[in-house]
Design a binder for these strands. Structure first.
Length: 478
RNA sequence: GGCACCGUCGCCAAGUGGUAAGGCAGAGGUCUGCAAAAUCUCUAUCGGCGGUUCGAGUCCGCCCGGUGCCUCCA
């Protein structure tokens, strides 16, 4: 299946041709670890995790690097506020990152470089930039000279004149040009510092990604990802740095995910209108969050709202119920060459077609819904002659789920976790519910429909929904 | 001010120029003692106005409305 993806650099969909056949080098900007992750981070996590999984699904050997920015002004400020060493702040939030992203079923990348483990690489890149006349030392601060890079602004579609007339350029006497940005920051007393040819200091934000990307993926690699907000200045500066140092463009395909909005407005730290992932987990299942995050195309903005999350919860619940019933029927069966049948199924073909069109997860999920309907119908028919078909559909569904990072729990586990979340609000008295159900079943046996309905009405009022099955009466929370 | 992007059913959301996927909600049928679940059927001409074309949601222009980037930010 030929993969096409939208390249932010050229602003169009392009055929994906890796630099090295069957191999992909991918770098995604991680987080600055000074606080808990919010839903925006969750989206970037889910989007690039899905891309990573799909590339592997296509058979590529993927070298995937995602960094931790563990030295930065914000980290230092946070440490000072709390009166703790900065390392304590970063360790805490790296730990929290793993917890939050782990629940979202985000796979661990091939490498996860930390900025502070790569100071020598950054120093050497900066030195090389100075040598090539692309950077200058001003009293211990080193700046990149934007004028030295003719292509500056290509990724973000800006030209330096416009940037200069913009109202918000940083006025800094030490800079030759207001657009120049820091590669190395001289440290003040009591600030964390590393030795360098320009005196003690710490690296600027942009240089770390250039240095680590180069180290792990080479001077030019296939894919670089991140949120749209990183295009300028972060990624623009990365290009300038890497190109300046190596003379080669660092990245072939740039991929940027859209924002998570609250009431149509970008969710961000600076606006203060953000939800942390862990806040969401208190009320919503992580897998529901993941489904919500990938139900829209990754480049479009998504609006985070209770209604939208609840819709996703309904969809996922339906999937798990269908899977549970089908698994029951397929249990113990073993269709010969199941993998081949799955691979060549029309459903899998269409799934790959959708995903290969710039990772269209929205269409992929629509296809999953259609396949679920097929599975439900086959399950209901309970026709042993069609078990193979059901088994193939179920296996295909699971396989696409693996690409999307869904359906990896057992249905029972999912249902029980959902139950617990819902029950937190209602605080249901299980014994009372069981007793009412017993009463109702006694009444049903005696064909006392009035009393039976009364029992159910009482339960409905408590938020309990009944389901009479061949195996008995089951109940769940609405 | 500069540069991008977006406006599709009540809500969410896909859509390579050929006559609108999917989900939620809603209506009706099957099933059920009644329900639930499942399943079937039904519900939009795509912000507005022009233009290009045999044909446009899909390309061009203008207008209206919304968002983002230009400062740290996924």
């Amino acid at each position: 299946m030929k993969l096409r993806l939208y390249n932010s650099l050229t602003r169009q969909k392009e055929d994906f041709v890796p630099l090295k056949e069957n191999h992909v080098g991918m770098y995604v900007c991680g987080v600055t670890v000074y606080d808990y992750c919010h839903v925006g981070h969750a989206r970037a996590g889910a989007v690039f995790d899905t891309i990573y999984r799909y590339l592997k699904h296509l058979g590529y050997e993927v070298n995937y690097a995602r960094n931790f920015t563990d030295i930065d002004d914000k980290i230092i400020n946070r440490a000072n506020e709390q009166g703790v060493p900065w390392q304590e702040v970063t360790e805490k939030f790296i730990q929290a990152f793993y917890e939050d992203m782990g629940k979202l079923n985000i796979e661990i990348p091939t490498v996860e470089p930390k900025a502070t483990d790569h100071i020598p690489e950054m120093i050497s890149m900066i030195a090389s930039l100075i040598e090539r006349g692309k950077a200058y030392n001003k009293g211990g601060d080193v700046f990149y000279s934007v004028h030295s890079f003719a292509d500056y602004g290509r990724l973000s579609g800006k030209n330096t004149d416009d940037l200069l007339t913009g109202a918000r350029v940083d006025i800094n006497e030490d800079k030759r040009n207001p657009l120049d940005f820091a590669l190395w920051k001289k440290s003040k007393p009591d600030e964390p510092a590393w030795g360098s040819p320009w005196g003690p200091g710490r690296p600027g934000w942009h240089i770390e990604c250039s240095a680590m990307g180069t180290k792990y993926l080479g001077e030019t690699f296939d894919i670089h990802g991140g949120g749209k907000d990183l295009i300028f200045p972060h990624h623009e500066n990365e290009i300038a740095q890497s190109c300046g140092a190596s003379g080669k463009p660092p990245v072939k395909y740039w991929i940027h995910n859209g924002f998570v909005n609250i009431d149509k407005e970008k969710m961000s730290k600076s606006l203060g209108n953000f939800f942390t992932i862990r806040e969401i987990y208190k009320r919503h299942h992580p897998e529901v969050l993941r489904l919500f995050l990938i139900s829209s195309h990754y480049r479009n903005p998504i609006d985070f709202s209770e209604k939208n999350i609840e819709d996703a919860a309904k969809v996922l619940t339906r999937f798990y119920e269908g899977i549970e019933a089908a698994e029951e029927l397929v249990k113990g069966k073993k269709t010969p060459s199941l993998n081949d049948a799955v691979r060549s199924s029309a459903f899998m073909q269409k799934f790959e077609e959708a995903m290969s069109d710039d990772f269209n997860t929205a269409v992929a999920i629509a296809l999953l819904n259609e396949e679920l309907r097929k599975i439900n119908t086959l399950t209901k028919q309970q026709n042993s002659g069609q078990d193979a078909e059901l088994e193939i559909s179920l296996a295909a569904m699971k396989k696409t789920g693996k690409v999307l990072g869904l359906f990896y729990r057992s249905p029972k586990e999912f249902q029980s976790e959902m139950f617990q979340l819902k029950n937190q609000e209602l605080g249901l008295d299980t014994e009372k519910i069981e007793a009412l159900i017993a009463d109702r079943n006694a009444a049903r046996k005696a064909k006392d429909w009035g009393k039976a309905d009364q029992c159910r009405d009482d339960l409905t009022a408590m938020g309990v929904v009944l389901e009479d099955t061949a195996q008995g009466t089951e109940w769940k929370i609405k």
